[in-house]
Design a binder for these strands. Sequence first.
DNA 1: ATTGAGATTGACATTTTTCGTCTAAAACGT
DNA 2: ACGTTTTAGACGAAAAATGTCAATCTCAAT
Lengths: 199, 199
Amino acid sequence: MAATDQEGGQREAILDAAFGRFAHYGYRRTSLGDIAEAAGLSRPALYHYFHNKEDVFRALAQRINRGVVEAVTAAAQREGDTLARLTAVVEARVGWAFDLLHASEHGRELIDEKNRLCGAAGADTNAEFAALLERILARGEARGEISLASVAMSPREAALFLIDSVEGVIGKETVEAAARHRLRILTQLFVGGLRVPAG
Amino acid sequence: MAATDQEGGQREAILDAAFGRFAHYGYRRTSLGDIAEAAGLSRPALYHYFHNKEDVFRALAQRINRGVVEAVTAAAQREGDTLARLTAVVEARVGWAFDLLHASEHGRELIDEKNRLCGAAGADTNAEFAALLERILARGEARGEISLASVAMSPREAALFLIDSVEGVIGKETVEAAARHRLRILTQLFVGGLRVPAG
DNA sequence: ATTGAGATTGACATTTTTCGTCTAAAACGT
DNA sequence: ACGTTTTAGACGAAAAATGTCAATCTCAAT
Protein backbone atom coordinates (compact mmCIF):
# COMPACT_ATOMS: atom_id res chain seq x y z
CA MET A 1 0.00 0.00 0.00
CA ALA A 2 2.84 2.36 0.86
CA ALA A 3 4.36 1.75 -2.54
CA THR A 4 1.05 2.40 -4.24
CA ASP A 5 0.57 5.58 -2.30
CA GLN A 6 3.98 6.79 -3.29
CA GLU A 7 3.35 5.91 -6.89
CA GLY A 8 0.05 7.73 -6.79
CA GLY A 9 1.77 10.72 -5.21
CA GLN A 10 4.34 10.77 -7.95
CA ARG A 11 1.65 10.59 -10.58
CA GLU A 12 -0.07 13.55 -9.00
CA ALA A 13 3.18 15.48 -8.81
CA ILE A 14 3.81 14.78 -12.46
CA LEU A 15 0.32 15.89 -13.37
CA ASP A 16 0.80 19.08 -11.37
CA ALA A 17 3.99 19.80 -13.23
CA ALA A 18 2.38 18.89 -16.53
CA PHE A 19 -0.54 21.18 -15.91
CA GLY A 20 1.80 24.06 -15.20
CA ARG A 21 3.74 23.45 -18.37
CA PHE A 22 0.75 22.82 -20.59
CA ALA A 23 -1.01 25.91 -19.30
CA HIS A 24 2.08 27.98 -19.77
CA TYR A 25 3.51 26.75 -23.03
CA GLY A 26 0.67 24.85 -24.63
CA TYR A 27 0.61 21.21 -25.56
CA ARG A 28 2.82 21.25 -28.61
CA ARG A 29 5.60 23.29 -27.08
CA THR A 30 5.80 21.22 -23.92
CA SER A 31 8.15 18.25 -24.02
CA LEU A 32 8.18 15.31 -21.69
CA GLY A 33 11.65 16.40 -20.65
CA ASP A 34 10.21 19.72 -19.50
CA ILE A 35 7.52 17.99 -17.49
CA ALA A 36 9.96 15.53 -15.98
CA GLU A 37 12.31 18.32 -14.98
CA ALA A 38 9.50 20.34 -13.45
CA ALA A 39 8.31 17.26 -11.58
CA GLY A 40 11.82 16.61 -10.32
CA LEU A 41 12.60 13.30 -11.99
CA SER A 42 14.28 12.09 -15.11
CA ARG A 43 12.46 11.60 -18.36
CA PRO A 44 12.79 7.83 -18.42
CA ALA A 45 11.41 7.67 -14.89
CA LEU A 46 8.36 9.47 -16.11
CA TYR A 47 7.70 6.64 -18.52
CA HIS A 48 7.18 4.44 -15.50
CA TYR A 49 4.06 6.36 -14.65
CA PHE A 50 2.75 7.29 -18.08
CA HIS A 51 3.08 5.77 -21.50
CA ASN A 52 3.72 8.99 -23.37
CA LYS A 53 2.80 12.63 -23.60
CA GLU A 54 -0.72 11.89 -24.74
CA ASP A 55 -1.18 9.63 -21.76
CA VAL A 56 -0.04 12.37 -19.40
CA PHE A 57 -2.43 14.80 -20.98
CA ARG A 58 -5.27 12.33 -20.90
CA ALA A 59 -4.73 11.67 -17.21
CA LEU A 60 -4.64 15.38 -16.58
CA ALA A 61 -7.85 15.91 -18.48
CA GLN A 62 -9.48 13.11 -16.53
CA ARG A 63 -8.41 14.67 -13.26
CA ILE A 64 -9.91 17.93 -14.38
CA ASN A 65 -13.03 16.16 -15.51
CA ARG A 66 -13.42 14.62 -12.09
CA GLY A 67 -13.22 18.11 -10.64
CA VAL A 68 -15.88 19.28 -13.05
CA VAL A 69 -18.19 16.44 -12.11
CA GLU A 70 -17.74 17.22 -8.43
CA ALA A 71 -18.40 20.90 -8.92
CA VAL A 72 -21.44 20.29 -11.07
CA THR A 73 -22.85 17.71 -8.70
CA ALA A 74 -22.39 20.08 -5.77
CA ALA A 75 -24.11 22.87 -7.69
CA ALA A 76 -27.04 20.60 -8.44
CA GLN A 77 -27.65 20.16 -4.69
CA ARG A 78 -28.44 23.83 -4.24
CA GLU A 79 -32.00 24.89 -3.76
CA GLY A 80 -34.06 27.28 -5.84
CA ASP A 81 -36.33 27.33 -8.81
CA THR A 82 -35.50 25.67 -12.10
CA LEU A 83 -33.76 28.72 -13.55
CA ALA A 84 -31.56 29.16 -10.47
CA ARG A 85 -30.65 25.49 -10.42
CA LEU A 86 -29.88 25.31 -14.12
CA THR A 87 -27.80 28.46 -13.91
CA ALA A 88 -25.80 27.12 -11.00
CA VAL A 89 -25.06 23.84 -12.74
CA VAL A 90 -24.13 25.46 -16.02
CA GLU A 91 -21.86 27.94 -14.29
CA ALA A 92 -20.19 25.18 -12.35
CA ARG A 93 -19.68 23.23 -15.55
CA VAL A 94 -18.16 26.09 -17.44
CA GLY A 95 -16.39 27.76 -14.57
CA TRP A 96 -13.92 24.91 -14.36
CA ALA A 97 -13.18 25.09 -18.02
CA PHE A 98 -12.44 28.77 -17.71
CA ASP A 99 -10.51 28.62 -14.50
CA LEU A 100 -8.34 25.79 -15.68
CA LEU A 101 -8.05 26.29 -19.39
CA HIS A 102 -9.30 29.58 -20.71
CA ALA A 103 -7.45 31.32 -17.92
CA SER A 104 -4.22 30.31 -19.58
CA GLU A 105 -3.29 31.69 -22.93
CA HIS A 106 -3.30 28.27 -24.47
CA GLY A 107 -6.81 27.33 -23.48
CA ARG A 108 -7.97 26.87 -27.02
CA GLU A 109 -5.10 24.60 -27.95
CA LEU A 110 -5.54 22.59 -24.77
CA ILE A 111 -9.25 22.20 -25.30
CA ASP A 112 -8.67 21.10 -28.87
CA GLU A 113 -6.09 18.64 -27.66
CA LYS A 114 -8.44 17.36 -25.02
CA ASN A 115 -11.15 16.84 -27.61
CA ARG A 116 -8.69 14.99 -29.80
CA LEU A 117 -7.23 12.80 -27.07
CA CYS A 118 -10.07 12.19 -24.70
CA GLY A 119 -13.31 12.44 -26.50
CA ALA A 120 -14.57 9.42 -24.56
CA ALA A 121 -13.70 10.77 -21.13
CA GLY A 122 -15.22 14.09 -22.07
CA ALA A 123 -18.32 12.23 -23.12
CA ASP A 124 -18.53 10.64 -19.68
CA THR A 125 -18.32 14.03 -18.03
CA ASN A 126 -20.93 15.36 -20.36
CA ALA A 127 -23.14 12.39 -19.62
CA GLU A 128 -22.97 13.22 -15.94
CA PHE A 129 -23.69 16.81 -16.77
CA ALA A 130 -26.60 15.80 -18.99
CA ALA A 131 -28.07 13.55 -16.31
CA LEU A 132 -28.07 16.39 -13.82
CA LEU A 133 -29.68 18.79 -16.25
CA GLU A 134 -32.23 16.19 -17.18
CA ARG A 135 -33.15 15.66 -13.57
CA ILE A 136 -33.50 19.37 -12.94
CA LEU A 137 -35.68 19.80 -16.01
CA ALA A 138 -37.87 16.86 -15.13
CA ARG A 139 -38.30 18.17 -11.64
CA GLY A 140 -39.10 21.62 -12.99
CA GLU A 141 -41.76 20.11 -15.17
CA ALA A 142 -43.15 18.09 -12.28
CA ARG A 143 -43.33 21.28 -10.26
CA GLY A 144 -45.17 22.94 -13.08
CA GLU A 145 -42.50 25.62 -13.53
CA ILE A 146 -41.73 24.72 -17.11
CA SER A 147 -43.42 22.80 -19.87
CA LEU A 148 -41.39 20.76 -22.28
CA ALA A 149 -44.51 19.81 -24.20
CA SER A 150 -44.47 23.19 -25.90
CA VAL A 151 -41.24 22.25 -27.68
CA ALA A 152 -42.06 18.57 -27.92
CA MET A 153 -38.91 17.47 -26.14
CA SER A 154 -38.24 14.96 -23.45
CA PRO A 155 -36.19 16.16 -20.46
CA ARG A 156 -33.24 14.22 -21.87
CA GLU A 157 -33.55 15.85 -25.29
CA ALA A 158 -33.88 19.26 -23.70
CA ALA A 159 -30.81 18.62 -21.56
CA LEU A 160 -28.74 17.61 -24.57
CA PHE A 161 -30.04 20.61 -26.45
CA LEU A 162 -28.94 22.91 -23.63
CA ILE A 163 -25.53 21.26 -23.47
CA ASP A 164 -24.94 21.76 -27.16
CA SER A 165 -25.99 25.38 -26.84
CA VAL A 166 -23.65 25.87 -23.93
CA GLU A 167 -20.76 24.37 -25.83
CA GLY A 168 -21.51 26.57 -28.80
CA VAL A 169 -21.57 29.67 -26.67
CA ILE A 170 -18.37 28.99 -24.79
CA GLY A 171 -16.68 27.71 -27.92
CA LYS A 172 -16.92 31.02 -29.69
CA GLU A 173 -16.29 33.48 -26.89
CA THR A 174 -12.81 33.54 -25.45
CA VAL A 175 -13.20 36.33 -22.88
CA GLU A 176 -14.30 34.82 -19.62
CA ALA A 177 -16.61 37.57 -18.39
CA ALA A 178 -18.32 37.86 -21.76
CA ALA A 179 -18.80 34.12 -21.98
CA ARG A 180 -20.29 33.94 -18.50
CA HIS A 181 -22.70 36.69 -19.43
CA ARG A 182 -23.74 34.90 -22.60
CA LEU A 183 -24.26 31.73 -20.62
CA ARG A 184 -26.58 33.42 -18.17
CA ILE A 185 -28.59 34.83 -21.04
CA LEU A 186 -28.72 31.45 -22.71
CA THR A 187 -30.04 29.77 -19.60
CA GLN A 188 -32.59 32.50 -19.03
CA LEU A 189 -33.84 32.27 -22.59
CA PHE A 190 -33.96 28.52 -22.34
CA VAL A 191 -36.00 28.46 -19.17
CA GLY A 192 -38.08 31.45 -20.24
CA GLY A 193 -39.03 29.73 -23.45
CA LEU A 194 -40.24 26.70 -21.55
CA ARG A 195 -42.02 28.57 -18.83
CA VAL A 196 -45.62 27.61 -18.35
CA PRO A 197 -47.79 30.60 -19.33
CA ALA A 198 -49.26 32.24 -16.28
CA GLY A 199 -52.93 31.60 -15.95
CA MET B 1 13.66 55.31 -49.99
CA ALA B 2 10.20 53.85 -50.06
CA ALA B 3 11.66 50.38 -50.34
CA THR B 4 14.00 51.04 -47.47
CA ASP B 5 11.16 52.36 -45.33
CA GLN B 6 9.10 49.30 -46.00
CA GLU B 7 12.02 47.04 -45.25
CA GLY B 8 12.64 48.90 -42.03
CA GLY B 9 8.98 48.59 -41.15
CA GLN B 10 9.05 44.87 -41.74
CA ARG B 11 12.12 44.56 -39.59
CA GLU B 12 10.34 46.40 -36.81
CA ALA B 13 7.27 44.22 -37.21
CA ILE B 14 9.42 41.12 -37.01
CA LEU B 15 11.15 42.43 -33.91
CA ASP B 16 7.78 43.18 -32.33
CA ALA B 17 6.65 39.64 -33.00
CA ALA B 18 9.97 38.27 -31.81
CA PHE B 19 9.77 40.21 -28.59
CA GLY B 20 6.33 38.86 -27.90
CA ARG B 21 7.44 35.31 -28.51
CA PHE B 22 10.71 35.56 -26.63
CA ALA B 23 9.02 37.19 -23.66
CA HIS B 24 6.32 34.56 -23.65
CA TYR B 25 8.17 31.36 -24.42
CA GLY B 26 11.78 32.21 -23.79
CA TYR B 27 14.61 32.11 -26.27
CA ARG B 28 15.11 28.39 -26.54
CA ARG B 29 11.48 27.52 -27.00
CA THR B 30 10.86 30.10 -29.69
CA SER B 31 11.47 29.03 -33.28
CA LEU B 32 11.94 31.24 -36.28
CA GLY B 33 8.80 29.71 -37.68
CA ASP B 34 6.88 30.97 -34.68
CA ILE B 35 8.27 34.46 -35.10
CA ALA B 36 7.60 34.48 -38.83
CA GLU B 37 4.04 33.33 -38.29
CA ALA B 38 3.44 35.95 -35.62
CA ALA B 39 4.93 38.59 -37.90
CA GLY B 40 2.70 37.45 -40.73
CA LEU B 41 5.25 36.19 -43.22
CA SER B 42 6.87 32.93 -44.15
CA ARG B 43 10.00 31.66 -42.51
CA PRO B 44 12.16 31.96 -45.61
CA ALA B 45 10.99 35.55 -46.04
CA LEU B 46 12.24 36.29 -42.56
CA TYR B 47 15.71 35.27 -43.63
CA HIS B 48 15.62 38.21 -45.97
CA TYR B 49 15.71 40.55 -43.00
CA PHE B 50 17.79 38.61 -40.52
CA HIS B 51 20.50 36.01 -40.82
CA ASN B 52 19.19 33.68 -38.12
CA LYS B 53 17.58 33.54 -34.72
CA GLU B 54 20.60 34.98 -32.96
CA ASP B 55 20.58 37.87 -35.36
CA VAL B 56 16.92 38.57 -34.60
CA PHE B 57 17.63 38.49 -30.89
CA ARG B 58 20.67 40.72 -31.22
CA ALA B 59 18.69 43.30 -33.16
CA LEU B 60 15.97 43.14 -30.54
CA ALA B 61 18.47 43.62 -27.74
CA GLN B 62 20.00 46.57 -29.56
CA ARG B 63 16.60 48.16 -29.96
CA ILE B 64 16.00 47.71 -26.26
CA ASN B 65 19.45 49.06 -25.48
CA ARG B 66 18.70 52.19 -27.50
CA GLY B 67 15.59 52.64 -25.41
CA VAL B 68 17.60 52.27 -22.24
CA VAL B 69 20.13 54.84 -23.35
CA GLU B 70 17.34 57.28 -24.18
CA ALA B 71 15.62 56.77 -20.86
CA VAL B 72 18.83 57.10 -18.90
CA THR B 73 19.91 60.19 -20.80
CA ALA B 74 16.54 61.80 -20.20
CA ALA B 75 16.73 60.98 -16.50
CA ALA B 76 20.16 62.56 -16.28
CA GLN B 77 18.70 65.88 -17.46
CA ARG B 78 16.52 66.18 -14.41
CA GLU B 79 17.46 68.64 -11.70
CA GLY B 80 18.14 67.94 -8.07
CA ASP B 81 20.97 67.07 -5.76
CA THR B 82 23.41 64.27 -6.39
CA LEU B 83 21.32 61.63 -4.66
CA ALA B 84 18.18 62.53 -6.59
CA ARG B 85 20.02 62.56 -9.88
CA LEU B 86 21.77 59.28 -9.27
CA THR B 87 18.54 57.67 -8.17
CA ALA B 88 16.73 58.86 -11.28
CA VAL B 89 19.42 57.55 -13.60
CA VAL B 90 19.69 54.21 -11.86
CA GLU B 91 15.94 53.74 -11.86
CA ALA B 92 15.74 54.62 -15.52
CA ARG B 93 18.51 52.15 -16.26
CA VAL B 94 16.93 49.33 -14.35
CA GLY B 95 13.32 50.15 -15.05
CA TRP B 96 13.73 49.23 -18.68
CA ALA B 97 15.27 45.95 -17.84
CA PHE B 98 12.38 45.13 -15.57
CA ASP B 99 9.64 46.38 -17.82
CA LEU B 100 10.99 44.55 -20.81
CA LEU B 101 12.60 41.47 -19.39
CA HIS B 102 11.96 40.74 -15.76
CA ALA B 103 8.31 41.43 -16.34
CA SER B 104 8.15 38.28 -18.41
CA GLU B 105 8.74 34.93 -16.82
CA HIS B 106 11.73 34.30 -19.00
CA GLY B 107 13.63 37.40 -18.04
CA ARG B 108 16.54 35.46 -16.66
CA GLU B 109 16.93 33.31 -19.74
CA LEU B 110 16.63 36.33 -22.01
CA ILE B 111 19.18 38.29 -20.04
CA ASP B 112 21.57 35.37 -20.14
CA GLU B 113 21.01 35.06 -23.85
CA LYS B 114 21.60 38.76 -24.28
CA ASN B 115 24.86 38.54 -22.39
CA ARG B 116 25.90 35.63 -24.56
CA LEU B 117 24.92 37.15 -27.87
CA CYS B 118 25.52 40.85 -27.44
CA GLY B 119 28.11 41.40 -24.82
CA ALA B 120 29.59 44.17 -26.95
CA ALA B 121 26.34 46.06 -27.41
CA GLY B 122 25.61 45.73 -23.73
CA ALA B 123 29.03 47.13 -22.99
CA ASP B 124 28.22 50.17 -25.13
CA THR B 125 25.04 50.74 -23.19
CA ASN B 126 26.86 50.36 -19.93
CA ALA B 127 29.54 52.76 -21.14
CA GLU B 128 26.86 55.36 -21.77
CA PHE B 129 25.43 54.64 -18.38
CA ALA B 130 28.84 54.89 -16.75
CA ALA B 131 29.58 58.18 -18.46
CA LEU B 132 26.38 59.68 -17.12
CA LEU B 133 27.03 58.46 -13.60
CA GLU B 134 30.57 59.73 -13.79
CA ARG B 135 29.40 63.17 -14.81
CA ILE B 136 26.86 63.31 -12.02
CA LEU B 137 29.43 62.23 -9.45
CA ALA B 138 32.00 64.72 -10.69
CA ARG B 139 29.43 67.46 -10.56
CA GLY B 140 28.39 66.43 -7.08
CA GLU B 141 31.98 66.66 -5.99
CA ALA B 142 32.42 70.04 -7.62
CA ARG B 143 29.35 71.21 -5.76
CA GLY B 144 30.83 69.96 -2.53
CA GLU B 145 27.94 67.55 -1.92
CA ILE B 146 30.08 64.47 -1.89
CA SER B 147 33.72 63.66 -1.48
CA LEU B 148 35.32 60.86 -3.42
CA ALA B 149 38.63 61.48 -1.70
CA SER B 150 37.37 59.64 1.35
CA VAL B 151 37.24 56.41 -0.62
CA ALA B 152 40.19 57.25 -2.86
CA MET B 153 38.23 56.83 -6.07
CA SER B 154 38.01 58.86 -9.22
CA PRO B 155 34.51 59.69 -10.46
CA ARG B 156 34.96 57.05 -13.16
CA GLU B 157 35.96 54.39 -10.66
CA ALA B 158 33.07 55.29 -8.42
CA ALA B 159 30.67 55.12 -11.36
CA LEU B 160 31.89 51.66 -12.35
CA PHE B 161 31.68 50.58 -8.74
CA LEU B 162 28.08 51.73 -8.55
CA ILE B 163 27.26 49.97 -11.81
CA ASP B 164 28.67 46.70 -10.59
CA SER B 165 26.71 47.06 -7.38
CA VAL B 166 23.54 47.76 -9.30
CA GLU B 167 24.05 44.72 -11.46
CA GLY B 168 24.68 42.59 -8.44
CA VAL B 169 21.53 43.80 -6.76
CA ILE B 170 19.24 43.33 -9.75
CA GLY B 171 20.91 40.08 -10.65
CA LYS B 172 19.89 38.40 -7.43
CA GLU B 173 16.44 39.79 -6.87
CA THR B 174 13.77 38.72 -9.30
CA VAL B 175 10.77 40.49 -7.83
CA GLU B 176 10.51 43.90 -9.37
CA ALA B 177 9.26 45.86 -6.39
CA ALA B 178 11.83 44.30 -4.08
CA ALA B 179 14.62 45.00 -6.53
CA ARG B 180 13.60 48.64 -6.92
CA HIS B 181 13.60 49.01 -3.16
CA ARG B 182 17.06 47.49 -2.87
CA LEU B 183 18.28 49.83 -5.59
CA ARG B 184 17.06 52.90 -3.77
CA ILE B 185 18.79 51.72 -0.63
CA LEU B 186 21.96 51.03 -2.55
CA THR B 187 22.01 54.50 -4.06
CA GLN B 188 21.28 56.10 -0.72
CA LEU B 189 24.07 54.20 0.99
CA PHE B 190 26.41 55.02 -1.83
CA VAL B 191 25.76 58.73 -1.71
CA GLY B 192 25.52 58.75 2.06
CA GLY B 193 28.91 57.15 2.36
CA LEU B 194 30.43 59.81 0.16
CA ARG B 195 28.68 62.74 1.73
CA VAL B 196 30.96 65.48 2.93
CA PRO B 197 30.78 65.65 6.74
CA ALA B 198 28.83 68.66 7.85
CA GLY B 199 31.01 71.32 9.41
C1' DA C 1 22.59 -10.01 5.32
C1' DT C 2 20.02 -11.30 1.42
C1' DT C 3 16.60 -11.09 -1.61
C1' DG C 4 13.44 -9.19 -4.80
C1' DA C 5 10.19 -5.84 -6.57
C1' DG C 6 9.67 -1.35 -7.82
C1' DA C 7 11.90 3.09 -8.98
C1' DT C 8 15.41 5.54 -11.39
C1' DT C 9 18.81 6.67 -14.71
C1' DG C 10 22.31 6.98 -18.76
C1' DA C 11 22.54 5.66 -23.28
C1' DC C 12 20.82 4.50 -27.76
C1' DA C 13 18.11 4.32 -32.25
C1' DT C 14 14.18 6.40 -34.18
C1' DT C 15 11.13 9.96 -35.21
C1' DT C 16 9.92 14.73 -35.39
C1' DT C 17 11.04 19.46 -35.53
C1' DT C 18 13.82 23.23 -36.78
C1' DC C 19 17.33 25.33 -39.52
C1' DG C 20 19.51 27.43 -43.40
C1' DT C 21 19.57 27.63 -48.36
C1' DC C 22 18.17 27.43 -53.08
C1' DT C 23 15.02 28.33 -56.71
C1' DA C 24 11.12 30.08 -58.75
C1' DA C 25 7.27 33.08 -58.67
C1' DA C 26 4.67 37.36 -57.18
C1' DA C 27 4.64 42.43 -56.18
C1' DC C 28 6.38 46.77 -57.09
C1' DG C 29 8.35 50.90 -58.94
C1' DT C 30 10.42 52.88 -63.20
C1' DA D 1 8.15 45.81 -70.59
C1' DC D 2 12.11 45.54 -67.39
C1' DG D 3 14.78 44.95 -63.34
C1' DT D 4 14.60 45.01 -58.47
C1' DT D 5 12.78 43.67 -54.23
C1' DT D 6 9.93 40.67 -51.56
C1' DT D 7 7.85 36.29 -50.87
C1' DA D 8 7.05 31.33 -50.32
C1' DG D 9 7.53 26.14 -51.60
C1' DA D 10 10.86 22.60 -51.22
C1' DC D 11 14.95 20.13 -49.75
C1' DG D 12 19.00 18.35 -47.20
C1' DA D 13 21.40 19.10 -42.78
C1' DA D 14 21.33 19.82 -37.94
C1' DA D 15 19.06 19.64 -33.59
C1' DA D 16 15.61 18.19 -30.40
C1' DA D 17 12.18 15.03 -28.68
C1' DT D 18 10.62 10.46 -28.38
C1' DG D 19 10.31 5.70 -26.80
C1' DT D 20 13.02 1.77 -25.15
C1' DC D 21 16.59 -0.87 -22.99
C1' DA D 22 19.91 -2.73 -19.77
C1' DA D 23 22.06 -1.46 -15.67
C1' DT D 24 21.77 0.53 -11.19
C1' DC D 25 19.73 2.04 -6.96
C1' DT D 26 16.34 1.92 -2.85
C1' DC D 27 14.23 -0.21 0.51
C1' DA D 28 10.90 -3.16 2.69
C1' DA D 29 10.34 -8.16 3.71
C1' DT D 30 12.46 -12.17 4.94
